[in-house]
Design a binder for these strands. Sequence first.
DNA 1: CGATTCCTTGAGGCATCTCAAGGCAAGTGG
DNA 2: CCACTTGCCTTGAGATGCCTCAAGGAATCG
Lengths: 260, 260
Amino acid sequence: MNTALEAPVRSSRPVFVAQRAHVAPAPLKTQCSTCHLRELCLPCGLGGTEMQQLDSLMFARRKVKTGDTLYREGDKFQFIYAVRSGTFKSSLMLADGREQVSGFHMAGELMGLDGLAQGTHASSATALEDTEICAIPYAHLNELSAGNSNMQHVVSRLMSREIVREHSLMMLLGSMNAEERLAAFLLNLSQRLKARGWSASEFHLRMSRAEIGSYLGMKLETVSRTFSAFVQQRLLEVDKRHIRIVDLDGLTRAFEMRVQ
Amino acid sequence: MNTALEAPVRSSRPVFVAQRAHVAPAPLKTQCSTCHLRELCLPCGLGGTEMQQLDSLMFARRKVKTGDTLYREGDKFQFIYAVRSGTFKSSLMLADGREQVSGFHMAGELMGLDGLAQGTHASSATALEDTEICAIPYAHLNELSAGNSNMQHVVSRLMSREIVREHSLMMLLGSMNAEERLAAFLLNLSQRLKARGWSASEFHLRMSRAEIGSYLGMKLETVSRTFSAFVQQRLLEVDKRHIRIVDLDGLTRAFEMRVQ
DNA sequence: CGATTCCTTGAGGCATCTCAAGGCAAGTGG
DNA sequence: CCACTTGCCTTGAGATGCCTCAAGGAATCG
């Protein structure tokens, strides 16, 4: 379903498509100005000049298969990654071997910004389905924005957005019960899918109950039970990982019990 | 005890002290190059040229008294703030009126970076004791770093550090029990105090049990009980808000049960 | 087809929350 | 100076929400 997003090359450029077939092993390059994700992704808010500059960087594209990692904790930080299609999770390893999921990322979202702090990635990124990403060399991006305060502001704003995102997750982990957490999670997912042109009320979860649980600070059994509770309350229909939000207002109320 | 930090003017500059007394209502201006916090704060890692540029901005200093707010959720974002002395808390208001504390900030730390995302502050900053801050106009800082990739990198790294900080807090909230949380909190505090030249083993908490609880995702009674448990285990001595870490290794073990 | 992974559900236990009472220190007003 | 209030902390007792352990079903894979 999501894989439709994977075709960045439009029919108006058949020559390029033909070329691609012949140079298959060479890394594909992408320009932001023609990307269907430009309104969601890095170039969001940038005008013609800056867009051209971004285009000149010709970001390399790469496919990452289900279960493969894009980068791991401790890897040298060189690239910021933009998701082109599919879903990733970010996670940290705990001492006892368990993992803590710190985020899920979908098309148009950036990953790897936490690597700047120490020069090495602070988390790992794993594909939850077959995915494609753009690798954005941080050094190049930095050079570019050193000459342009608009560009720089865009990058800073993206980082700030990450901070805000984590703020709200902290709130969630710090002060909500199981139903509120799962409701918040589903509503957030629903909104992000909607912003990408997908249905806000019906979707397929790319992550396991255990991954949701880790992200929300609860056990997988509790996640499962909470799904069942929502079904009984006629807020959701659930078939494995297929979710249909039946009563959006009700779900919102379940979430708003504590927040905004 | 911490209030000693409040005197940025050393005895070697008595003339300036005298001046301050006469121009009290006018806003004080500060230069980074002579600030005793320069190794911890914004200019950390910058060389002579960039330091001079920062100096040219002449950040305004401001006192904020106990309980007063520096900025509130929704306020227009114009400044990043550096703590000069004292302690702040960042917090969000929940719908039911309760607050969720999202961080504590001490000398040399930056606040307000979450405001970039939307152009308005996403959290409020409240002084937990009498404090002093530097107000850093974001627009000016942005102009400066638009001409200098070192400067820009420093700002980005600071934001990234904030992201990493929140990552670890999420881990804490997502996967630790009460003793692990409080141990992590105390060890973190201890390290930050040490980096500022204070004792790592004996200090005064600036925040209430309720604020600690909100930050750590537990009720104030549980915080209190956990303090008592640590005292019984001879890890701490506690007298109200005065804390002495008696057994650092033991406390570290209490924390390391799950992490690293 | 067996092995594996993921999910659901039940039963019981426990950590933390909730409610409640009381102590202590600092501040306030008579 | 004392009585009173207020804010903050501690501790107890009981309630409960989530976790742990366990069993079994369904889908997927080699």
